[in-house]
């Protein structure tokens, strides 16, 4: 093979590689762009799909600011294009200084002040009265302790926040161990949960449905695996749900084989199930486990197999989880406990 041939061949390879690169590039663009756009179709965890008053005004403000930013960028581009294309000495010194004063000083000041004034009303927290429903949420590594209507007759639960539509609700937020942040994108802005301090977020849902919230402050290895379900209910349905949930679990039967195993493996050392001896508040309350839509704080679908697998190897789903692994537990026992837990409704 002479040198010319080799060069031609190498050139051919380069051309082929370039073609392949172009095809891959096109494919990546072809798949990434629609994926980015499809993200806008998310209705259950999106600040652009609000189901509450505060998120709706935040979305309006976002649109106003975005439009203003685009208009400002476009006008600046046009102005710069005009300045570059215009021959020199078209403006006298005085005219130039006046242009700088008005276009560079007065106009931006007025515009920025208008945008500031448009955004400030959102900083005013919604009014709340002592008669309004309170929900206390504590962030833990890596789950949420939810106490609806704290006080006598309170309802303790985990990883699921239920709200009545059309009523003002004050959510008291605290960090149980480290700093977390509570965010239901469709409902309101995010708020930090700080140990030893209570931050109150006042919200009002206006559209029933199932939504999702997330932790938005890095809190440990499984920070990204710390979500929760949000259920906005019609007021009457919410009142009925509250009344029905306060008592012992409907199918909490001591006769279930899983119930005995739950006690024998010492699960009650951390977890509580109303109506049984298990009353510890270290881990998530499991009283109505079977009613929840997801497992492991909004991460896995609620199935017996997932529950059994989580009991034996929680760290496989959530790295850094505080619950110890039960890898010595026979699978049949884990399935029995999972079946018992899923029956708690």
């Amino acid at each position: 093979m002479d040198a010319d041939n080799r060069i031609r061949q190498e050139g051919g390879t380069t051309a082929r590689e370039a073609t392949i690169d172009a095809i891959i590039g096109r494919r990546v663009t072809g798949s990434v762009l629609p994926a980015l756009l499809l993200a806008a179709c998310n209705r259950h965890q999106s600040a652009l799909a609000p189901f509450g008053a505060e998120a709706a005004s935040t979305r309006t403000l976002t649109i106003v600011l975005l439009v203003a930013a685009v208009v400002i960028a476009a006008s600046m581009t046009l102005l710069m294009r005009h300045a570059i294309r215009t021959p020199g000495e078209r403006l006298t010194h005085d005219q130039g200084m006046k242009l700088v004063l008005w276009a560079g000083g007065v106009f931006p000041t007025i515009l920025l002040f208008a945008l500031l004034a448009a955004s400030l009303p959102l900083m005013r927290p919604a009014p709340v009265s002592p008669a309004d429903l309170r929900i206390k949420v504590e962030g833990e590594q890596f789950w949420w302790r939810v106490v609806t209507a704290p006080g006598p007759g309170q309802l303790v639960s985990a990883n699921e926040v239920r709200l009545p539509v059309g009523r003002t609700v004050a959510i008291d937020l605290a960090g149980g161990d480290v700093i977390h942040s509570f965010w239901i994108p469709g409902l309101a802005g995010k708020m930090d949960m700080i140990p030893g301090r209570i931050n109150t977020l006042v919200v009002r849902a206006d559209k029933p449905g199932r939504y999702r919230g997330v932790c938005t402050e890095f809190c440990g290895l499984s920070h990204a695996l710390m979500a929760f379900d949000v259920v906005a209910m019609e007021p009457a349905a919410f009142d009925g749900w509250m009344a029905g949930q306060r008592g012992a679990s409907a199918t909490a039967s001591a006769a279930a084989p899983g119930a005995a195993l739950f006690a024998r493996y010492g699960c009650g050392g951390c977890h509580a199930i109303r109506g049984t001896d298990a009353a510890s508040a270290i881990g998530p309350d499991l009283s109505r486990y079977g009613n929840r839509a997801t497992l492991a704080a909004g991460i896995l679908p609620m199935t017996t197999a997932n529950t059994a697998a989580f009991i034996r190897h929680p760290e496989a789903t959530k790295p850094g989880v505080r619950m110890p692994a039960f890898d010595h537990m026979p699978e049949a026992d884990a399935v029995a406990i999972a079946t018992y837990l899923q029956g708690l409704k």
């Binding site: 000083g105 002040f113 400030l120 005013r124 927290p125």
Partner: peptide, 22 residues
């Protein structure tokens, strides 16, 4: 002086809007 006056007004406006410690 002009910039600082604008800065003072821009800082004072949010304080005037706030009504709550939350």
């Amino acid at each position: 002086a002009v910039l600082s006056a604008i800065g003072v007004v821009f800082t004072a406006t949010p304080v005037a809007f706030l009504t709550d410690c939350r």
